[in-house]
């Protein structure tokens, strides 16, 4: 099936994103990895729309919402990172640990 390469490549991008989000120490770096995860989902959806003829072209509409939400989330995230930078002068997540486990 034609869909398989697309699912494969989105799975690779997803894996890179998850790896980045789990290993990055810089909060901005984590944000960038998260964008990769969201985009992996978008590739899947658009490919599904092309090859499976989804009802109402939901495969095109869904990614638009995903992109919007990801942008909103990044905006709030950057604001939080900025506020924490003002107080602790660092954006490295392992240094932000006043509350113990």
């Amino acid at each position: 099936m034609m869909l398989v390469p697309f699912i494969g490549i989105s799975a690779i991008i997803f894996a890179i994103g998850v790896y980045g989000a789990l290993t990055r120490r810089n909060a901005i770096g984590i944000l960038m990895s998260l964008e990769l995860i969201f985009n992996a989902a978008n590739i899947n959806l658009v490919a599904a729309n092309k090859f499976l003829n989804l009802e109402n072209s939901i495969g095109i509409i869904f990614p638009i919402f995903v992109i919007t939400i990801a942008a909103a989330e990044a905006a709030v995230g950057l604001a939080i990172i900025l506020s924490i930078y003002r107080q602790t002068k660092t954006v490295y997540v392992e240094k932000i640990n006043i509350m113990k486990w």
Partner: peptide, 27 residues
């Protein structure tokens, strides 16, 4: 601020995984 940062990072991360899972279910 620290609580918000941790909530945000884990929240956004799981939202990404959530929407990727959705894309597989839709496919």
């Amino acid at each position: 601020a620290e609580g918000a940062l941790k909530y945000f990072l884990i929240g956004a991360f799981s939202a990404g995984i959530f929407v990727y899972g959705m894309s597989l279910v839709i496919t």
